[in-house]
Design a protein around this nucleic acid. Sequence first.
DNA 1: CCTGGAGCAGTTTTT
DNA 2: CTGCTCCAGG
Length: 842
Amino acid sequence: MNTGFDDIPFFDEEPAPRKPAIGKSDGKVDMDAARPVDAPGTMGIAARAIAARDQARAPDYLSGLNPEQREAVETLDGPVLVLAGAGTGKTRVLTTRIAHVLATNRAFPSQILAVTFTNKAAREMKERIGVLVGGAVEGMPWLGTFHSIGVKLLRRHAELVGLSSDFTILDTDDVVRLIKQIIQAEGLDDKRWPAKQFAAMIDGWKNKGLDPSQIPEGDARAFANGRGRELYAAYQNRLKSLNACDFGDLLLHPIRMFRANPDVLRDYHQRFRYILVDEYQDTNTAQYMWLRLLAQRPSSKNAEGKTVNGTVNICCVGDDDQSIYGWRGAEVDNILRFEKDFPGAKVIKLERNYRSTEHILGAAGHLIAHNEGRLGKTLFTDRVDPNDEKVVVHAAWDSEEEARAVGEEIEQLQRNQHLLNDMAILVRASFQMREFEDRFVTLGINYRVIGGPRFYERLEIRDAMAYFRVVCQAADDLAFERIVNTPKRGLGDTTIRNLHDYARARNIPMLQAASDIVLTDELKPKARKSLLDVVADFSRWQDMLDNTPHTELAEKILDESGYTAMWQNDKSAEAPGRLDNLKELIRSMESFESLRGFLEHVSLVMDVEQNENMDAISIMTLHSAKGLEFETVFLPGWEEGLFPHQRALDESGRAGLEEERRLAYVGITRAKRRCHLWFVSNRRIHGLWQSTLPSRFLDELPPAHVEVAEAESSYGGYGRGGGYGQSRFDKQEPFQNNYSTPGWKRAQANKTDATRENWGSRSGHAVERIGYGESGPRGKTIDGQLVAKSTASEPSKFAVGDRVFHIKFGNGNVSAVEGNKLTIDFDRAGQKRVLDGFVERA
DNA sequence: CCTGGAGCAGTTTTT
DNA sequence: CTGCTCCAGG
């Protein structure tokens, strides 16, 4: 896999322009003229005949594409924007397009630049191209994230921006610590001017592509009594002297480098014959500038003296309706402006959806139509089934009941042989997850939380990595400072400050300073001895770097430094888990060639794959759900203030509301067959109960595709809080909601009664009702069929009295076993019921 | 150097 | 009501 520094020769030979073996050579598609792109499903007869003819002749990889997809694949010349709605085969287009370029010998694999946002997307794309073109994908060094490609460029040309090619990449944590140092060094109060906040500001500036000299005066004034600009500059200087980059620099340095070195840029212009960009709606200004530099070539005269289009064959794929990252710098405007930016651009809309039912598409489409400033797409599907369930809106009293009712629906689906793997709960904010987790633990429903704290962000992993970093890169002061006294070696603040000053005064790395200072009398004997040991350790490990297998060395480092022992001696509940993580870390190094290669990988790839083996429902935020799909999707928490989130409204007004609406759109369009929306009347926010109003987005759904769930058995019903029906917001909306469906009317009529009933039935909640059967059928597809398929049928491998460990609750003793559900007396957390899958033998 | 309690904030997330 | 950070006191 990743071997660290890349060793791909800069230029390989140019491919001789050969006539493609199959297909057309001019890249023009005959059907273009015949079919207006904005009329879905309508195609002239002649065009259909041509399509059919081409289909018959087309190479394998093109078969099965619909006409729009095919056009997007075959329009290879000039700028192309593919507006790919949710579930319209976006990735397929992207990968097939690359396969097509390769199969027709238009470019070598190394001449294609394909950019994604996440490592996951890059990985998937690589896999899928591999399926189409086999090993050729291995020759695509320029397929990756913006950042990983940025690193590759920088390693080559580091000296052009004043770095050396072995620069280190700092993550957010390092950055914050560094900024804190700077703030303190400037004599500022780091309480009043938090490093975190300033790090966020710098991040924002870098997203916009701004140097310290370019930031707006207002921004510069906003921090540290007007010293923002100065601090930003100081930070950049510090990075340079550390030979380090933050994530933003991975984009900005290449931009600077290209601007200052037109000859280098020209080389890359020659190299990249085709540029492809995934999720274009998520690009920020810096990424846009980066792409522009690479894509926009100087216009030139051709043989006949005509001016030739100066733009490379760039293809951007995205969906303005799924732009949900404005808050971290993404500019929807980039995609909205595409045709202006790239004159003569071809815009192809993919609107044929292969994922969802007509009701789901209808609901999502009607909702998103409330946004202004869209490029405008309407998803449709051919596969219409009268048995398809409408989108269902449920009301619950409070979040506890919401979780309980969702739990019952899940069990009902399970009894009808649906897999948990096909279901997901998508929440707006992660605090919503907890209630579901609690409920699922009680019910014995396996679940998996997607997102959350990531492996490489864990304390122990970062510590271990810091050791490795110092061994590989003795000048990595941030890493050195992190672990110089971890485990505790009696090297306190005073010693560290001493060391720090010594190093700064002589302008040498701290490790170097340490090995010098121990020869002097500057430190107390105790500290001196400790530091001497540390220096000796590192020098020994550095010597072993080139002649010891890296996993072995890594283990040695952790053992000899006393780091492993530190956790072994730790009695806290999380210590065993941390040791496991360290083992996992070593294991994951095996697939790399060297410690260095591993570090490079980890600095860019912060995620680690989840265990997909067990059948479990996924719980995640709407943001992390983008790009995924599930048979059944539950969307809880559709209440004003939570969704749309109050802060989005307060901070970004109309734009914020529209982004929230896009988030709702993303949520609904994750569902293939069933989509259930929930709102509650009471939610506990920051510890206190507040009554809430249903989300305005519910009012924006089309009645024809939506049904309101019947009040559910003993505790269902509609809370007070009221106006569920008429749109109370956006009064000037072009849409008139008229809810005339029976279910909706009933809901309206029931509102007051249900409220009263609910108040009355509160006491019933004290008794937890775990069981099947009684709850009436909801929706159309799930009725009857009370097949007893207990989730708790497997005998547990644990027995009463076993000593077990739980990642969250720590150690405890099993006091009861019931199927796969255990009752455990935890040493610290008290008695809990837990699924046996979540514990292991202590 | 360690730890407990006060104090405070509290969407969304990738690289 | 949490969970985290930071400071002060042992």
